[in-house]
Amino acid sequence: MAARSKMILGRVAQAIPVVMGVVVISFLLTRALPGDPAAYFAGPAADEASIAEIRETLGLDEPLFQQFFYYVGDLIRGDLGTSLTTGQAVLTDLGARLPASLELTLVALLLSCAIAIPLGVLAATRPGTWVDHLCRVLVTAGVSMPTFFTGILLIYIFYYLAGLAPSPLGRLDFIYLSPPHVTGFYLIDAALAGDWETWLGALKQLILPATTLALFTLAPIARMTRAAMLSALSSDFIRTARAAGLSDRKVLFGYAFRNALLPVVTTLGMVFSFTLGANVLVEKVFAWPGIGSYAVEALVVSDYAAVQGFVLAMALLFVALNLVIDIAYALIDPRIGLN
């Protein structure tokens, strides 16, 4: 146990220079963005004087290094600044939107894994059969259809034509109140509050967007499972296990699958981080108040505080994610020791 916590601490320590680098780079990059936030936010009928006034209010008339010191000073006090686009503190925005994106992405990934991993295993054990072909077709269709298109298609079929899905109006239909804030995950919060009506409402809203994202993330996971299983199944230790007369089940899940899991977990980590930032289009189509559309809107209007806050939050999330994956490795593969 001591070894494990030591490893975790080591990992966290390694993350510190990364985060510092991210702070500097995100600051410089946002300043390098074209566009003048002061002119943008001065409004449609502003003159030179009022633009200058706003520049002063925003502190943009100060030299760059001065602005950076203010920024770092605020950061140390836990203040990420105020977003101009939403009018809220960036911390509040991230606190509201990150759970929304995480909930959607996690549910989508669970769904995706539940389909992709068995499919990949089946395709690997029966290469060239109809299962393998089905896997290939599904995977190709999943990646080749852009998410916004799948999203609109699903809305058209299940909401517009069939009327089975609820109105695509974001995380909760307007007839529900959002559950009391604990984690920001509506499914968890509603369950904690024991409000199963809202829980069901939140779940219903999740189904279509999560399916859309799942279809998109199906491909890398299924392909990776299939490839990893194929190479594991053809390796010497499987031949030995078979020769030793172990049951098919034991060989497949006890030896082949466990070995194949390593690359799958790596892929999962990559897919997760990629999806979290890249599901902007799904968020737009389903009116989902997530982090992706927040970042894009902030970028479009050069909203410095919001962009920096987003980059920082993502950096921290990646550090945490990598840690989780490293620990998962150690659990799966005894060769990767904890010390």
Partner: peptide
């Protein structure tokens, strides 16, 4: 009066056509 923000025009159109808004 409830004003909901729905960024995608396609989604807004589906909602108004179905009469849910």
């Amino acid at each position: 009066v409830i004003v909901r923000e729905v960024p995608s025009p396609a989604t807004r159109r589906a909602l108004i056509e179905r009469g849910d808004v």
